[in-house]
Design a binder for these strands. Structure first.
Lengths: 111, 111
DNA sequence: CATACTCACCTAGAATGTCTAGTGAAGAGC
DNA sequence: GCTCTTCACTAGACATTCTAGGTGAGTATG
């Protein structure tokens, strides 16, 4: 009933969203969460318990790196940044997402 | 390299695909698998080990029922059919999918 | 009629990724 | 000093898909 409905993420989409968010430059975790939420029109909501494991996963795979820094609010923060490998991965995942989404659209389309 | 690339399903999309496949009438498992694959242009591939648990899940939730019958190839088969509840669920999941897909598209869209 | 193949169904356990529900530390505002 | 907010983190629960098997019965081949 509420027009503020928030949906759970589909498993596998968070990496894509995070990589895309870092495309415009380094950002720390809090910012990334807010950016995804804002840019999705408040439809997507990323929990901290999803985001931080995802960031660590991306680091492990060499798709992002981080540096320590200070946030706009004067807190200690880690600034995450896309690597060259991560930029390539973003292209791959974007392409896969588009293929998947259009494949599902074809199945859903009333024949 | 292959143009026959097949992608893994996103977790949470299989129920939607199965419900949609049953929208045109009863079908057995084998047929459902083939229908999803064909209608997606061979992009989506459903494993038996994913499909049958999904069908049992949908029965448990009251979204589909089944009857025993005989397939076009003269084999014993279970014909699955949408319930009224399942039809409603299909509408909900279709709507959620569209919201999610467009939310992700907004995030991906180069600003 | 023996064999191989396909159809149709099933399951256990691994793998993956998100969420729930916490903890902790440190700056800002009162 | 006290509370609120920001930022980071983690363990464990949970849900779903996949891998890798297995079964039984009909069909085709020789």
């Amino acid at each position: 009933m509420s027009s503020e409905e928030r949906l759970e993420l589909l498993q596998g989409t968070l990496d894509l969203l995070v990589l895309q968010s870092l495309r415009r430059g380094p950002a720390h975790g809090h910012t990334i969460m807010q950016a995804i939420e804002r840019r999705s029109g408040s439809v997507l909501h990323v929990e901290q318990g999803s985001l931080y494991p995802a960031l660590h996963r991306l680091i492990k795979r060499g798709w992002i790196t981080f540096e320590h820094g200070t946030s706009e609010n004067n807190r200690r923060a880690k600034y995450y940044e896309l690597t060259a490998k991560g930029l390539k991965q973003l292209a791959v995942e974007t392409s896969n997402w588009e293929k998947l989404a259009s494949a599902i659209a074809r199945v859903l389309r009333p024949a």
